[in-house]
């Protein structure tokens, strides 16, 4: 029972990690391409990362 929960948590973390990596990487690319838009990109990045984080935490706690 506990093991299944842990496997689920691991899957969630893997998914969230991939998502966060995508967000961060694309944001970096965007900033490198257009340094003058860095502020806007950063804000959007943080918001999207926060939404993803909320999703991941929600899933983690639902499973626990």
């Amino acid at each position: 029972m506990v093991t299944y929960n842990l496997i689920g948590a691991g899957l969630i973390v893997i998914g969230a990690g991939i998502g966060l990596g995508q967000i961060g990487g694309k944001a970096m690319e965007g900033i490198a391409r257009q340094p003058e838009a860095a502020g806007k990109i950063q804000t959007a990045m943080i918001i999207i990362a926060a939404l993803l984080e909320g999703l991941a935490f929600g899933a983690l706690f639902l499973g626990k």
């Binding site: 939404l51 984080e53 909320g54 999703l55 929600g58 706690f61």
Partner: peptide, 9 residues
Amino acid sequence: FSLLVRLFA
């Protein structure tokens, strides 16, 4: 829910 869980977690 995401707001409360994010801060808490």
